[in-house]
Design a protein around this nucleic acid. Structure first.
Lengths: 331, 331
DNA sequence: AAGTTACTTGCTACCGGGTGCAAGCGAGTG
DNA sequence: CACTCGCTTGCACCCGGTAGCAAGTAACTT
């Protein structure tokens, strides 16, 4: 069993008290150059570094942020996780990655995060529901929470989100201008997708333009396979004459699955026979094979804002940012 | 500032000592039914649950596992992370996601994980080098480490890895049988790719078959964009007559970028003009648009094994598992 | 020289639990 | 009734730090 050196051991080696050792490792503490030098020498010799666990306990601050993720099928999670962890680490924080997919109880996950005294919880997934917070097991206390990249829908929990209304307006404007008039919308797991509000705004804007019927397609999950299954179900149950001329999918990964199936299984041309739009601007959507028209969320700014809220530089209030329509060949 | 109840408070409420409270929350501790019931009642009323931070400090066990990841461009990371976090959580462990991309100092990351007293470190990325462990700042102590999904190449650190030699043999056998004789290999970031050993075995097996020249393509990173750039550089510098007839890419995401560019930018047919092979079996590679022949790593078993090593059920020794060749239309 | 000020340093108490020993208590035994 | 055994409970001390007070020291003031 390896054993880390403690402040006491360093103190004995340097001939000072353990508090002087602590001061040597505390920014701006009152200590003479000479003492500090001797402590640091002893510390180096003994390979000492402060135990962050003990510090966390004493300071009631762990510098750990729990990140709740479900929806691992969406490849868009990765760039967000990369930037989020990067920014957290730059501030001396660290991410605890908590899987809250359907195999886990969210209340339990929250309790566990709380027991570990995380400084904050970032909800970065679609499934977390308001009811969870009202669960009796949770009682009065839960760490401060923030929702990333979806509408909060949770009382008192702020969100950092891409402006869905504006996004869908830009998308529908574009589709309308291109002459499409028979739209369809494919949503992911129904219980979860309301938080994204994409479908809702899609319907609204079409209505404003005088288009009242929007076909509904629904996928089981957010994955290419689920997109394939959803478009198949639609195609099998809809006569060619009744088919939509443009399909908007709740995210890119559904769109890629759908587009692929339209061409591969049904021999349709995209966009001539049916246009397809996604959401997220996943790297591969821009590949030649797809040329998927999509909408890019302002990832970096979103993470800037959530970092500011986590660190308290900015009040914990929902912030809505604007993204960018990316038109490619699929429309 | 929210405040959690402590064992002492529960003890006062239940009319016992704090140690009795602790015992009520300790599996198999010596305590009467009656005491336990009273403690639990008080605990529920006060919404008490043990502070895991304090417990970790006292027991010198945090139940936290640091997972070091670089290479966020590879979408294959997600299913691994999903399964890994799922399995960790099932054992009461939790993953600290540590980003070790090029913006971070690996020694510092390791020191930090050690200061946080993680029970183990899982290296799940390509870039970590043996030299890091020999850095003087690290001294004697680092947490037990395990390498996931690449060759360890680090002294004393075991790996759980897919048998690259066998994999590449199956792949090359397949390509040879299909009649290809002018192979090329695209590797990702050169400093990192040696750990995957894919290129090495690819060359060896072709040599056995009497093919001594294998074209070398190299991408900057593991991403579709990098794959695009690498294939472009190759195409621009190679006369049509000299071109390879099959391109093996170090992973699927490179292969998708390359395949896409071959078709989109150069108008080549895959596989007729050039076949393409990937590695990892990323979901989208199986899409109609690509039909990428690839090799699937035995993700679940790999994670089974690494969990067994982390929990000590299995000795910490490198384990090599076999994957599965997936032949599709790209070859 | 005594008083003031500023800076160091050690100490007590504490963060919220865990360990191992010893005292307390009741039942069973001779 | 004294004695042993076994379970339950309380206690001192520990995990490795942190906060804030107070004593100690040196330099500066009048």
């Amino acid at each position: 069993m390896r054993k880390r050196a403690t402040a006491k051991e360093v103190a004995d080696a340097a001939g000072v008290s353990k508090w002087t050792v602590i001061r040597a490792f505390t920014e701006g503490a009152s200590i003479t150059e000479e003492s500090k030098r001797r402590v640091m020498e002893a510390a180096t010799a003994l390979n000492y570094s402060p135990n962050l666990l003990a510090r966390s306990l004493a300071k009631n601050l762990t510098h750990q942020i729990a990140v709740f993720v479900d929806d691992f099928a969406n490849p868009q999670k990765l760039p967000f996780l990369e930037t989020l962890t990067e920014r957290l680490q730059a501030e001396g924080l660290v991410a605890m990655l908590i899987n809250i997919n359907t195999n886990f109880d969210h209340v339990h996950a929250l309790l566990n995060a709380d027991q570990r005294q995380v400084d904050a919880v970032v909800l970065f997934g679609t499934a977390f529901r308001n009811e969870t917070l009202n669960d009796s097991r949770l009682g009065r206390g839960a760490p401060p929470m923030f929702v990333l990249a979806r509408d909060s829908q949770i009382e008192g929990v702020p969100a950092v989100v891409c402006d869905a209304e504006r996004a869908l307006r830009e998308i529908v404007d574009h589709l309308h201008a291109r002459g499409y008039r028979r739209p369809g919308f494919m949503s992911g797991a129904s219980a979860l997708s309301t938080a994204l509000k994409r479908r809702q705004h899609f319907l609204e804007v079409w209505k404003e333009k005088g288009v009242d019927t929007v076909a509904s397609l629904s996928a089981e999950r957010y994955s290419a396979q689920a997109g394939v299954a959803a478009i198949r179900a639609y195609m099998e149950s809809t006569a060619p004459a009744d088919r939509i001329d443009v399909l908007m999918c709740e995210n890119d990964i559904l769109a890629l699955g759908a587009m692929d199936t339209l061409r591969g299984t049904y021999g349709l041309r995209v966009p001539e026979d049916m246009a397809v739009v996604g959401f997220d601007n996943y790297e591969l959507g821009g590949a030649f094979a797809y040329g998927l028209t999509t909408y890019e969320q302002p990832k970096d700014e979103m993470i800037d804002v959530i970092m500011a809220m986590i660190t308290g530089r900015q009040p914990a209030e929902t912030v809505t940012l604007s993204g960018k329509l990316i038109v490619r060949t699929s429309t």
